[in-house]
């Protein structure tokens, strides 16, 4: 399994993400600079959090127009799995792979917290190791995570089971439409999410609930393997 961690000038969660996926046996993570034009070698592509290009113009806007994004869009069209986390989610909406946009948090503040997140569906390529309705803890750290889309898009997301994560227990820290914390593209191979699973990989980090997201995306099913 080869895993690309895309690095833009201004990315800052790239090494967390690299270490998170490299912690699994049989997974080879690689940093890939934003000028790269070919991602054919990779089974999973990760867009890290941070402030690519200093969030100039709009968060994710300049990163979404780099050479590596053209290659990423081609890979996504071939069905390769892509995960964009935080700033990576913003890049995915800016390049058009995911619908909607991420706006300034409704309370205007940068939020740093570890809220409860509901796993809305467990049928996706990224959530097969969770249970539907399960509440997990994943850190969030963003100033622009307020997901917005038009009414028609929202109805599609709901009807097609493409809302994967929601802020749970009555909280909606950034004001997102329908408490959305993570969504899929229509083919189901591209996930964008504001919470940081790579910061929840072990109990000493405060939560290990992020591990199963990568296990799902990488088709690692340790319990099944043990049983066999």
């Amino acid at each position: 399994m080869r895993c690309a961690v895309i690095v833009f000038p201004g990315s800052n969660c790239d090494s967390d993400l690299y270490k998170a996926v490299n912690s699994f046996e049989g997974v080879d993570a690689e940093y890939v600079w934003y000028t790269t034009e070919n991602l054919d070698a990779f089974d999973l592509i990760l867009l890290p959090g941070g402030f690519a290009y200093g969030d100039y113009l709009r968060a994710g806007a300049l990163a979404a127009r780099t050479p590596v994004l053209k290659a990423l869009i081609r890979a996504a069209e071939r069905g390769v799995r892509v995960i964009g986390i935080c700033n990576g989610f913003q890049v995915l909406t800016e390049c058009g792979l995911l619908p909607g946009a991420l706006q300034r948090n409704s309370g205007l503040h940068f939020i740093c917290d570890t809220p409860l997140i509901e796993v809305v569906q467990d049928q996706s390529s990224f959530t097969s190791r969770y249970q539907q309705g399960e509440l997990i803890r994943l850190p969030i750290a963003h100033g622009e995570g307020n997901y917005i889309c038009d009414e028609l898009t929202l109805r599609h997301l709901q009807a097609e089971n493409r809302i994967v994560f929601r802020y749970a227990s009555g909280s909606n820290p950034n004001g997102s439409v329908d408490k959305i914390a993570g969504i899929l593209n229509s083919k189901g191979n591209v996930l964008g999410m504001m919470p940081h699973p790579e910061r929840a990989m072990a109990d000493w980090m405060g939560s290990s609930d992020g591990r199963r997201l990568f296990e799902s995306a990488l088709n690692l099913f340790p319990e099944t393997a043990d049983a066999a």
Partner: peptide
């Protein structure tokens, strides 16, 4: 249309 404005918002 190509970069300066995000038509969604």
């Amino acid at each position: 249309e190509s970069i300066l404005v995000n038509p969604v918002i």
